[in-house]
């Protein structure tokens, strides 16, 4: 084993550019699949700039949480926040890295993108299987002037456990008593009705191919697949379009400072333009890390990403974390993560 390690080091020195490779090292992370393209892009650009290497394995939030708890990686990533208690029990802190918006998408002949308006009640009743046809009065009354067919609604949901489902069901759980009692929320739930597509792309494909469907996907997939999205009624009774601004409004309006463990859930946030079905994806690190040098690198990387990664995030249809929010996060890094009594992160 040691021999191989030596060879590895020699190889790194030969090919990696000695000084940089040693100064920066290699940091390992694992977890959520949703932010993978973003983290990969950031890692690539960061590597070009500093020579530091980041290796991120998108094995799913569950795996990421397990690995950071076991200290086998330098950071974990999860699409749903861990609870404050869970964080305390395992000596972890978490911070949001990007915001995702979940968008209901429909495929109804003659209904254009942004034309369909949905309220919290209508959406939850469709997913509960209570509203069975598109011309149901609960939908029709929201959409005067839109011709809705007398056809059965096919509900599409995710078949795999996912952060997208967590955000979507968390929203339904908050706004609908019936949903809260019957289903609840989680990365996977016991769906009352519908078909399951694997991944965002699976749901997008079903919605595209099957008529009279409704599904929910990450914002980026709705845009890239040119799916017809619905407008949602938010907490302040405005019908809002899904947009970067709407997701950022949800993130900015949330009370990050006052929420223990930053376990903020961005669904159903107040704000005139806030999109109601949003959520942050989180990075999790140990408060007393196994490798202090690596954790320092992790912070260096994510600090850079907060500041200089904004445009890259937007170009990939991810929503960056607003500046007031990440300032709070970086204060927490400095305060909470320590090695031998010394703070790991210093600005």
């Amino acid at each position: 084993m040691k021999k191989y390690l030596n060879i590895l080091i020699v190889l790194t020195v030969c090919f990696g550019g000695a000084s940089i490779a040693f100064a920066a090292g290699l940091i390992n992370g694992a977890g959520a699949t949703f932010p993978y393209p973003l983290y990969a892009k950031w890692a690539y650009e960061y590597n070009k700039k500093t020579g530091a290497k980041m290796n991120y394995q998108s094995i799913g939030s569950g795996g990421g949480i397990k690995q950071i708890k076991a200290k086998t990686v330098d950071f974990g990533a999860s699409d749903a926040p861990l609870t404050a208690k869970d964080l305390d029990d395992s000596g972890l802190i978490q911070f949001p890295m990007a915001v995702g918006g979940v968008v209901p998408v429909v495929n109804i002949a003659g209904v254009k993108s942004g034309q369909m308006k949905l309220s919290a009640e209508a959406l939850s009743d469709v997913y509960l299987g209570k509203i069975k046809k598109w011309n149901d009065v609960k939908i029709a009354s929201l959409n005067p002037g839109v011709t809705l067919p007398d056809d059965s609604i096919t509900v599409v949901h995710r078949s795999d456990g996912s952060g997208t489902t967590w955000i979507f069901t968390n929203y339904l759980d908050k706004v609908s008593k019936g949903w809260h009692e019957k289903v609840g929320f989680g990365t996977a739930v016991d769906w009352p009705t519908g078909v399951g597509g694997k991944g965002n792309e699976g749901v997008a494909t079903y919605v595209k191919r099957i008529k009279n469907t409704i599904g929910y996907v990450e914002y980026a997939y709705a845009i890239q697949n040119k799916l017809a999205h619905a407008r949602m009624e938010n907490k302040e009774k405005n019908f809002v379009e899904p947009s970067m601004e709407g997701f950022m409004a949800a993130a900015a309006n949330a009370d990050w400072k006052g929420t223990p463990g930053f376990a903020v859930v961005l669904t159903d946030q107040g704000g005139k333009n806030a999109w109601p079905i949003a959520g942050a994806t989180f990075i999790i690190v140990q408060k007393a890390p196994a490798s202090c040098a690596n954790t320092k690198e992790v912070f260096g990387f994510f600090d850079w990403a907060y500041r200089d990664g904004v445009d890259m995030a937007k170009s990939l249809d991810y929503v960056p974390i607003p500046q007031p929010v990440y300032t709070v996060m970086e204060d927490a890094w400095a305060k909470e993560v320590k090695c031998g009594g010394q703070g790991v992160w210093k600005r």
């Binding site: 397990k66 456990g161 996977a188 519908g194 399951g196 694997k198």
Partner: peptide
């Protein structure tokens, strides 16, 4: 109608089962 199978359930749900 849609259904599921053991292997499909495993492929779908393993990654996010916490």
């Amino acid at each position: 109608n849609p259904g599921t199978s053991i292997s499909a359930a495993l492929a779908n749900e393993f990654t996010e089962a916490v």
